[in-house]
């Protein structure tokens, strides 16, 4: 749940979502769910000339499985905290693995 937890903090920040079909969409992250589906608002396609399909779209819902990368606003990421959260997640995972 780390990624979910992380992306929740980025709500209302501007992110760039790079899809697996090479389209990059920049927009304001409106919501994210546990499948990392993403809702973006005020979107613009980064390479609009090449991908004019979305020119008329204002907002999108992106299925989590089609996302390749998400470019984060560096200022909105607390790296130290993220490291700790990762450690926790790893500790939990290993504890769970030992259980089973």
């Amino acid at each position: 749940m780390l990624f979910f937890s992380f992306f929740k903090t980025l709500v209302d920040h501007e992110v760039t979502v790079e899809l697996k079909n090479d389209i990059s969409i920049r927009g304001t992250l409106k919501s994210v769910d546990q499948f990392l589906n993403i809702k973006l608002d005020d979107i613009s396609v980064v390479d609009e000339v090449k991908y004019p399909h979305m020119s008329s779209c204002k907002n999108v819902f992106i299925r989590g499985s089609v996302v390749r990368y998400i470019h984060l606003p560096a200022a909105a990421v607390d790296t130290a905290l993220l490291e700790d959260a990762t450690r926790r997640e790893a500790a939990q995972a290993s504890a769970r693995a030992k259980q089973s």
Partner: peptide
Amino acid sequence: EDFYYQVYSQIRGAARENPNQP
């Protein structure tokens, strides 16, 4: 379950009044 979000919103000022789980 939600360490990053919980602590982050505590640090940076809670975005929501009730940062409960989805």
